[in-house]
Structures are given as structure tokens and as C-alpha cells.
Amino acid sequence: MLEIKNLSASIDGKEILKGVNLSIKAGEIHAIMGPNGAGKSTLAKILAGHPSYEVTEGEVFFEGKNLLDMEPEDRANSGVFMSFQYPVEIPGVSNIEFLRAAMNAKRKFRGEAEISLENFMILLDEQMKHMEIKEEFKERNLNEGFSGGEKKRNEILQMLMLSPMLAILDETDSGLDIDAMRIVAKGVNHFSNKDRALLLITHYQRLLEYVKPKFVHVMVDGRIVRSGGPELALELEERGYDWLTMSSPYEEAV
């Protein structure tokens, strides 16, 4: 589904990614872990199409299409979703209005008819129940005045509603209390199936207790330095990142 080949990127002339290789197939859950400043969030933003980063080398293919040539909105409408580490607050647009417009933007892109209000509401009520989001949040302005946990739950609600093929969750677990973590994990597990892929970006392995990845990758200084199974996350939890930073052995990604 996603093929990242030797991806290098910089911001303001500073090199952040230094040749990332990663391949994700449908049905797989991958986790990228690593110390702060390793380039994990940068990778997520580049995949979503953030305009501030310059790709200096490499390629990214999503379902065989050159992702880097696509506008952020076209990537989204083609099935790539990114949950933000810091979701922005948008005044003047209600949550419900935003979701419906986003769903219809995707449908329009695919040449499909708009979703009926009735069907939209049925779907929304169901997904809001999954995310344990109160009714009143429908009419509230998008993320405005939401707590950190509410914002993250709202991101996962958007993911469930927009139903992408590939979801990239950028530090979705950071700043969550145990209840919010449980709810977010429930939403993520609900989303996950054999046709969809997930890329979890996280600093801690906390989320991975709830959402089981098939592969864990460690990113240090703009490179994936080690890849393995779920046991790698536990090893990192025990030993930290220092042992990897020191030796920095380069391994080809899975």
C-alpha cells in the first residue's frame, strides 16, 4: 500500500530525514518509535503533504501512485489520513458541519454523490458512540476549547468517519490519560482491518499495549536504525534509546 524509498527531506535547509525506507502492506500495523527530534513527526507531515518540508531525495508510492506529486487534499481524498499531534482549533465551523463537508469533499473527488443527511447522522451517531464523545460536541466549533484528550478523540472520530486506507497517527497517545488512551485505542482497533493499514508514531510504547503492531521500527537521527516485531517496543521500554543512538547500526527496513 505504502512504499517509502530512500526518503530524504529538509526544512529551512536543515536535513531532517536522511534516507528512510519503509514498506507497509494492507492489513498491517506499523509503529515508528524513537527519541525526540529523530524525524518521526516530520515523516508523518511529509506523507500528509506539509508545504514547509522539501523532499531532497527519494520517492513515496501510495497504491502505486506517486504520493509526493499530489496536493495534500488529493492525498486525503485518495485515502491517506493523518491524525495531528496538535489538532488546530477552527472557529466558526461546527464539528458536524466540518465532518460532513470533509466526507462530501472526498465523495466529490471520487465522482460520487453527496451523503444524505440521514445516513450521515446514522454513521456519525455510531462512531461518536465508539469514541464516547458527547452529543454536544456535534455543534461545537471544531476543536475550539476542547481538552487535549477531546481533540485526540475527535481526530480518531474523523478517521472513522472518513474511512481512509492508510491512517498515520502522529503521537496520538501523547498527553492522554488512561481513560482517553483506552477510548482512542478502542477507536483505532475498531478501524483496523485487513484492507487498511496503520502507521503509529509514538515516543512511548504505552499505546502499543492496546494496539498491537506487527512491526516496530526505531528512528534515530532521520533514519530507521532498527526494525523488528512487537518485542522491540518492550526492549526499548526497558533499555531506552541510548544504546541505539550510540552504535547507530543501519538496517534495511522491513
Binding site: 503533504g49 486525503a76 493523518m82 469533499a105
Partner: peptide, 8 residues
């Protein structure tokens, strides 16, 4: 950017 990543 946030809005665009939601398909707008």
C-alpha cells in the same frame, strides 16, 4: 494544512 489534510 490541517483543513487540506481533511480533503478540502
Amino acid at each position: 494544512f490541517y483543513m487540506k489534510t481533511r480533503g478540502f
